[in-house]
Design a protein around this nucleic acid. Structure first.
Lengths: 120, 120
DNA sequence: CTTCATTGACTACGTGTGTAGTCGATACGT
DNA sequence: ACGTATCGACTACACACGTAGTCAATGAAG
């Protein structure tokens, strides 16, 4: 189930707020993206075709809802990315994120907690 | 500087062994990928066009060498990926990797060391 | 009821990407 | 010297992707 970057924007909206129609998706994206409603509908249609979204009739329109869980997709994508870019090693990835100031103090604290749990 | 997944395979070979020609790249990839030498040459040509690879004549052929440092590219790609998939938060990414068994004991130890340094 | 907006279905189109073929020049084996 | 393998340059082509237009039906607003 390949989801492209543009499609992912749609998925993110629907993961946050499942069961809305195309125009509501457009509203949710209006501030970050300046996508034509047509563009959004095309992306949604492709996601339905791919099986990433399910439809539910609501009058003369559809409501959409993710069929893929956000966490599942993230997990798969993360593994793929690390495999491709870092030969499967996670540590260098984290090092780079730190270096790119991608890690806040909170992140670091969270990671420490995580590692504590993993060691058990 | 956009590098596609297929192109990245080429870059990985050249980051490991800079200054080789197209046929040596083909040799290095022969076991994992079954790419026609033409395909490899096309990918290499595109990378040269993009400025990701430099050329150096060697008789009637070229030797290639990365103009982009592996670490720099990894860092940029990592940041992009985390932004897109996790809204910039690294911790959930690491959690997913752990869950996908993408983290070995060594990784965990390495990450702990890393976090120790980051806290300073 | 007429007009206008909105909807899903279908179509379009430039660029990117994976995968490779053609061609003319040249090096290499015999 | 001659055929063959190989090189770089150029070309090809299908499918993916971002971006949007057309069309016929339908619903909403006046």
């Amino acid at each position: 189930m390949q989801i492209t970057p543009a499609e992912l924007e749609i998925m993110n909206v629907l993961w946050d707020k499942p069961g809305i129609g195309a125009s509501e998706i457009a509203d949710a994206l209006k501030h970050d993206k300046s996508w034509n409603i047509r563009t959004i509908k095309t992306l949604v249609a492709r996601l339905v075709e791919k099986g990433a979204l399910g439809t539910e009739p609501d009058g003369r329109r559809y409501l959409y809802r993710p069929l893929v869980k956000r966490g599942d997709y993230q997990k798969k994508a993360a593994k793929q990315f690390v495999d491709r870019m870092f030969g499967g090693r996670a540590a260098p990835l984290v090092a780079h994120l730190a270096d790119a100031r991608g890690l806040s103090k909170d992140d670091i604290a969270e990671l420490e907690k995580l590692l504590g749990e993993l060691k058990k």
